[in-house]
Design a protein around this nucleic acid. Structure first.
Lengths: 338, 338
DNA sequence: CACCAGATCGTAATCGTTTTCGAAACCCTA
DNA sequence: TAGGGTTTCGAAAACGATTACGATCTGGTG
């Protein structure tokens, strides 16, 4: 005999009463409730979640899907770690727990998501690494699973999303560099299916146009979002016709490699070439320190959680004012690199 | 009508047969099995995991507990992501899935673990960030939950563990530096409850003694395992009596900050001060590149998974030769820093 | 005393699976 | 044809919780 039944027998009450007592239901004598709570504590009883989830049709777990291997997302681990903190702060208020669903780099993200949904241990999902076309959105919408995405996609099914304001970043970066006299600006675009690159480059193109400049294709440096990717960019710069005098990086993860590469070809960031990128714990201590866009990762996590909850029927009324789709502002922190 | 029952009715067979067909049980006609599989595919049926877990008493999920906020673990950006990849490669063979259990920096790890165990969605656990005294070990042992730890602890309950070979690292580092003529060696020890620091420092002490040197207390630099922590160390170096001519870092996460700090006090790694640390994607591209200890993170993940499985009754016989407790070797990669 | 309302609690159905057990059907052999 | 062995499948009992419903009891009121 195990579980709630054991507890009930030990107390000589019915399992129904035990359940009600434990769950704070009203129709149970306060004295009885006290005894139940006490015995549960003493015997170390905790409700079996499978039974509970089966009956209630909900698990109390929120899943954050991410890809293992940062070459895919272009974000460092610490990026997500900080976001998690914010998400959890909100979820804890509702006794919800957060787990990370780790999609191996060897598995197709769409298949992976299907498996996880089938497992059914999440009442709601947060998706990251959104692709230009992302079938996951349609899948979740079809299965009526509440979710929010960190990042947009052309595949918009009306779900809430929050995305970093790459448009704003593009505008500000270009304006800053052009006003500083730069005419040949390079853009590092970690290629892949991720949507953010497209958004970013397109807006850069527009921003340049406003100054009468056109974005030349060979000023777009496609590479992988890794240190090695950044390193290679530095090499490539020297080989092209009119080398850029400034570089904009949309990812966090390229900068150390880029710095090293530039050093090897004899260019010093901030003096010989201007660099604007994204802030990170590393970037602030590089030499020269990076000029880059910063954001509050924890607050971003809070907003994600609130956005998700507002999409879950059981919690929606608590978060009426959570904006459904929102660009997350970033602010430029001046460093020594540009 | 939902779930397996709907499928059964649609096919006009019993739910028992459907279950057996889906689970590859032998006593079902191959023709019937084909029909069931086909219908399941067509109707998009996937077994409800709560019901399944309730009945089977197992969830098919492995949990990897980690703390959000790298200042706690002292591991770099990609450390865990790479380990995950290895773990999943093994687990996938057994249709097990890996999720990360994210302990917020605001919550007590011991309480958190209890909650997660109560939730009961993991058949086995991998623990990281092991502390000098770690009550989690005893808790899991008491509840008979299979687990393995990445890192040792004084609280050893005989569970399998794998730990990085900090002893070997200490030996080799000290020997290398002493043979290069260094007599004043500094040790950066991110203080905190983590066990690894104690192990490392103790072995460094022994290694020094072998050369007739004694480890002076003010050559131990206690700090936080973050960029800022490394930065501060550089400052502190200048203030002490006999400043070290070499520095050993046990963590990945300090090096960029340390480099910056050293630059500001006019010391160049590799020329004015030798640095030995841990390799990471960043470290290879720093300038000067880091001399540091490297390891195969993916293989480490594989070993962790195998060690865990060998502790789980249902899989133990498949992994008879997985060593129960093992130091994971690291190899020194020479860089420019020392 | 009869009656009712409210408090408290037990009974039993239910959630969706897996799995045991036995029944039915079939083939084969003596 | 009887009997025995194989396949194949259905019925039903778990697994551990939640909850609707109804039963019992208490105390108060007319």
């Amino acid at each position: 005999m195990k579980g709630i039944r054991r507890l009930a027998e030990h107390l000589d009450v019915s399992i129904g009463t035990v359940s009600r007592a434990l769950n704070g239901k009203p129709d149970v004598n306060e004295e009885t409730r006290r005894r139940v709570l006490e015995a549960a504590e003493k015997l170390g009883y905790v409700a079996n979640q499978s039974g509970r989830a089966l009956r209630k049709g909900a698990t109390g777990v929120i899943g954050f899907m991410m890809q293992t291997g940062r070459e895919i997302t272009g974000q460092g681990d610490t990026f997500f770690m900080s976001v998690f903190d914010g998400v959890q702060a909100v979820l804890a208020r509702h006794k919800l727990d957060l787990v990370a669903l780790l999609c191996s780099s060897e598995e197709d993200p769409d298949d992976y998501l299907k498996r996880m949904v089938a497992r059914g241990f999440a009442d709601g999902l947060i998706l990251s690494a959104t692709r230009r076309h992302d079938p996951r959105f349609e899948f979740l919408a079809r299965h009526q699973i509440p979710f929010i995405t960190l990042g947009r996609s052309l595949t918009d099914v009306g779900q809430p999303w929050i995305d970093l304001d790459f448009e704003g970043m593009a505008e500000q970066s270009v304006e800053r560099l052009v006003k500083a006299g730069h005419r040949e600006i390079g853009f590092v675009w970690p290629h892949g299916e991720l949507n953010l690159g497209y958004v970013f480059i397109e807006r850069c193109r527009q921003a340049l146009a406003r100054f009468g400049l056109i974005l030349s294709e060979h000023h777009i440096f496609r590479t992988t979002p890794s240190e090695m990717g950044g390193y290679k960019v530095a090499r490539d710069i020297k080989t092209i016709e009119r080398p850029p005098t400034a570089l904009i990086l949309v990812n966090e993860t390229l900068v150390t490699g880029l710095y090293r590469g530039l050093e090897e070809v004899g260019l010093q960031p901030g003096r010989d070439i201007a660099i604007i990128g994204r802030q990170s714990p590393h970037a602030r201590f590089l030499s020269p320190t990076l000029t880059g866009f910063d954001l509050s990762l924890r607050d971003l996590g809070v907003a994600l959680a609130e956005g998700l909850l507002s999409a879950m029927p059981a919690y929606a009324e608590l978060y009426p004012k959570a904006p459904r789709q929102k660009l997350w502002p970033m602010t430029l922190i001046e460093g020594e690199s540009g």
